[in-house]
Simulated assay, not measured.
Amino acid sequence: MKQRILAEAERLFWRYGIRSVTMEDIAKQLGISKKTIYQHFTDKEQILSEVIQDKFGRDHKAMACVAVEAENPVAEIMHVLAMIQKNADQVSPNLLIDMKRHYPQAFALFKQYKEGEVLRSILENIQKGIEQGLYRSDLNPGILARLRVEQIELAFNNDIFPSNQYTMQQIQYELMHHFIRGMLTEQGFTIYNQYVNQYNHEVH
């Protein structure tokens, strides 16, 4: 039952934001009583914290698989973008805003993951790309990795990207493509263009 509660809470939080989802909403969707939820969790923040830990654990495994299976660092970034794009329309722009303002424990977990696993995987990707001649050798990997990590949070900033003007898919697509294009060598561009053409062919 605990895993069912976490799975439904994740779906609702990601879709509608955190503040607008009540314990009653979660119970109603599962066809159980609020009392049943309180047998497993003390409050909504505990549910949120466990949802985030589960979600980040799954994301980390998925990214690790991509890093191992991708033919090269450009392919790795394109696969990660495809994963983000696939789930972007299921993510409310309020998700991170709610977390930052009202759920400090959960936001601390997000920051820890962002500045740990995510930063490390981006840094490794950039270093591999430079070594393989796909990214420019004059890059500063540390600065660029931090830039990309901050873009993740930036995409949720409603003051910069109002949700009535841009979808999360559009924002993530533009930010990621802008980021990777700035790093590529001519050899890297050849590979990148192949993936873009392949993606456009599959979409159309």
Rank of each mutant, 00 (worst) to 15 (best):
H79M: 11
N87A: 06
N87T: 10
G129K: 01
V149G: 10
Q112K: 05
G129T: 03
M99W: 01
R101E: 15
K111I: 05
G129E: 11
N158E: 08
D138W: 09
L109W: 09
F110T: 00
I160A: 02
E115S: 15
L119E: 14
I122P: 07
K86Q: 15
A108K: 03
F156P: 00
H79K: 07
E124C: 12
L109D: 09
G116D: 09
G142E: 12
L95Q: 08
A82D: 12
I126Y: 05
N158R: 12
P93R: 01
M99V: 01
I84W: 13
F110K: 00
V74D: 02
I143Q: 07
G133T: 05
L134Q: 02
I152G: 09
N87P: 02
A88R: 05
V91N: 11
Q90L: 04
L134H: 09
E124W: 08
I143L: 10
D159H: 10
N140L: 07
V118F: 13
N94Y: 14
E115Y: 05
M99Y: 01
P93M: 08
Y135V: 03
L144T: 00
E153G: 07
I130A: 06
K86T: 11
A88H: 07
V80D: 15
Y135C: 03
E150P: 01
R146V: 14
A108C: 01
F107T: 09
H102F: 10
I84E: 10
D138M: 10
L134W: 04
A155C: 12
S121N: 03
M83S: 06
V149M: 10
L154Q: 03
K114W: 12
A75T: 07
S121R: 07
L154R: 04
Y103V: 05
R101K: 14
P141M: 12
M78W: 14
H102C: 05
F110Q: 02
V80H: 15
K128T: 11
Q132R: 10
P104W: 03
E76Q: 09
K111L: 11
K114C: 14
Q151R: 10
V91M: 12
Y113D: 00
I143P: 07
L81M: 10
A145M: 15
L134F: 11
H79L: 07
A82L: 12
L144V: 15
L134N: 02
V91C: 15
